[in-house]
């Protein structure tokens, strides 16, 4: 009797341990890297206003959120499963490339960035990770760093490298995470996917860039007529134009996200 009880206890303990290890494996702590405070001039700066803007320190996820991580999220938050998500939060093609609402399948490798996610879904994921989406400035500031320099944007070789990445056809299919880290240890900011940012919707606010033909459609408070200063930075401006064209419910095959956090 005593031996049986002991065995029973030991089995339970082992089962508990296994479950615990499995849970840890599924939810390995996401890696956030500190990005120090700086003065930063955005590619969005106007000719009239090109003085660096103070940008506080923050932490940025070292990798975009992967399919495996997003699968764990929808398992914990079933309202974000494909088929269950409300139509006002994601379009019809949300997570379309997954084999099933709770199964990744061959077209969605676990270590590939999750794509076909709406802004609302990305926002909800980051909140569940005690984080938030980065602002455009936070994303741009981290993405300005090469492996050795905090701001490589004026380096012709760096610009050429970026453009080479961006000119690869998207028909090649998505890569896996794990590119070379930049100065801050953040990876895959350029070569892998487009990424949602918190304030994607009005990055360029000059009427001519969003006007759909109706002269009454756009009127703005404040000085809205931006004239961009850094017109030669094609790689970044392409990204800005792409983000500005989106609505928060949209999903695309090349659009993923990563999260940011305040530093303690």
């Amino acid at each position: 009797m005593r031996a049986a009880a002991f065995l029973h206890g030991a089995t339970r303990w082992l089962l508990g341990l296994t479950a615990c290890v499995a849970a840890m494996g599924a939810a390995a702590a996401p890696d956030y890297r500190p990005i120090p405070a700086t003065g930063f001039t955005s590619v969005l700066a106007t000719e009239a206003d090109a003085t660096p803007v103070p940008l506080a320190a923050y932490a940025l996820r070292s990798e975009p959120v992967t399919n495996a991580e997003f699968l764990a999220f929808v398992q914990a938050h079933p309202e974000w499963r494909r088929g269950a998500v409300a139509g006002v939060f994601a379009d019809q093609r949300y997570l379309e490339h997954w084999a099933a609402p709770d199964h990744l399948g061959a077209d969605a490798p676990p270590d590939q960035p999750v794509t076909r996610v709406s802004w609302f879904a990305a926002d909800a994921y980051c909140r569940a990770e005690d984080a938030r989406l980065p602002t455009w400035l936070e994303w741009e500031r981290a993405a300005a760093a090469s492996a050795s320099v905090a701001d490589a944007r004026n380096d012709p070789a760096w610009r050429r490298e970026l453009l080479d990445w961006y000119s690869q056809p998207s028909s090649q299919g998505l890569g896996r995470i794990g590119g070379e880290p930049n100065l801050y240890g953040v990876r895959d900011l350029h070569a892998l996917v487009w990424e949602w940012v918190d304030d994607f919707s009005a990055l360029i606010v000059a009427p001519d860039s969003r006007d759909q033909g109706d002269p009454d459609r756009l009127k703005f408070c404040g000085e809205a007529a931006l004239s961009l200063r850094d017109r030669d930075n094609y790689a970044l401006l392409m990204r800005v134009a792409m983000l500005s064209s989106l609505k928060a419910v949209n999903t695309t095959m090349n659009l993923g996200f990563r999260c940011a956090r305040e530093l303690p």
Binding site: V88, D199, S201, A202, V205, G222, K247
Partner: peptide, 20 residues
């Protein structure tokens, strides 16, 4: 704002650029 599809942006002087 995302739900209502109203783009807006806070400008450096604290004012907001937005559609009506």
């Amino acid at each position: 704002a995302a739900l209502l599809d109203i783009p807006f942006r806070q400008l450096a002087d604290g004012s907001f650029s937005h559609a009506g």
